[in-house]
Design a binder for these strands. Structure first.
Lengths: 172, 172
DNA sequence: GTTAACAAGATGAGCGCTCAACCATTCCGG
DNA sequence: CCGGAATGGTTGAGCGCTCATCTTGTTAAC
């Protein structure tokens, strides 16, 4: 057996910093979104992707990929959001295995209502504390990580649906 | 109502990259740790902090802070790990409200057994995909974020005056 | 000293997630 | 065609987490 490649001091600090920063950031944003819009970040993501789709409708599998969600997770999430009236499911006409998820007017309204504070929260949490150079460094590293990890993991590689990100709700 | 400070295109990309990278990284490491050592990352963190403490013992509150965990979470986690025999709780001699969490031999052994593969997993996930400069950039940004976020609004949740909170009788 | 405020933890309900099945449909090699 | 593999999606158990609440112990004001 090969000897373990332990982390040197710099690597330890990097890993710790990433872990803690990730916790603090996600936690803060999740908490604020939950208290202001009554939805977790993952649901916001799903609604945002749906809102950008033609007809505000996507197949479950496509939606799962574009929101970086497992099928099981998406299935549970959509079931929940169907109960709250944000999404409706319809069967797919061309493939009887498939299901289409469609954003309802209520769902779209919920997304629009949630967006401004969520964006503000993201800005305060991430961008207000980092210099432009630090933002660039963060982005470069994260994009590289995504590239590094998205081929071999459990999620298929997908193309980002464009530079619009979670902001579709602002575009109308 | 002020106008929302929407994210520009660069900021969108940065935020998306951070979100996705964070998901992929944590997911991968968590999954591997779970399958190889039967514990979630948060538990590993707790065991690691305990193992570094004098007497392998810490007060719950200190342990909560040093593992960036809420008290409730730590309480649940320690309860669970007490069932599996990795931790024992003893009452604190100097403060009868307090509890001391002590790492057992079994807990220490579990941590030691988990460590090599976990470290290898971290290395493969984070460091093998990043150049030294990118690692440095990631570290700088994350450390800045931690600094930015750990001051106020850190973990202790801002409680609005609840039913038996201060000023409950007068507030409404 | 009494009493109100506060701190340390524990606890239980609720929720989102994972994992491992599971059913239904479609695809594809003989 | 047929039958097995692959695909799309759902389901339920189990778990870790949050939130609100509760208990117990400490502190401080008067």
């Amino acid at each position: 057996m090969e000897h373990t490649r332990w982390l040197d001091e710099d690597e330890q600090r990097t890993w710790r910093a990433f872990l803690v920063a990730q916790r603090l950031v996600l936690d803060r944003i999740e908490r604020r979104l939950q208290s202001n819009a009554g939805m977790p970040q993952a649901y916001y993501e799903i609604l945002a992707r749906l809102s950008e789709a033609p007809g505000r409708t996507l197949r479950m599998s496509v939606l799962a990929e574009s929101s970086w969600s497992s099928r099981s997770r998406l299935s549970h999430a959509v079931a929940r959001m169907e109960e709250t009236g944000w999404i409706v499911r319809r069967s797919c006409p061309t493939d009887r295995r498939g299901q289409l998820a469609e954003l309802t007017e209520e769902g779209f309204a919920a997304l629009r209502a949630a967006a401004p504070d969520h964006v503000e929260s993201v800005r305060e949490t991430i961008f207000d504390g980092l210099s432009p150079a630090q933002q660039a460094g963060l982005r470069e590293a994260c994009e590289k990580l995504v590239e590094h990890l998205s081929g071999t993991g459990r999620w298929p590689v997908i193309r980002d649906s464009g530079p619009d990100g979670p902001g579709a709700a602002r575009a109308s």
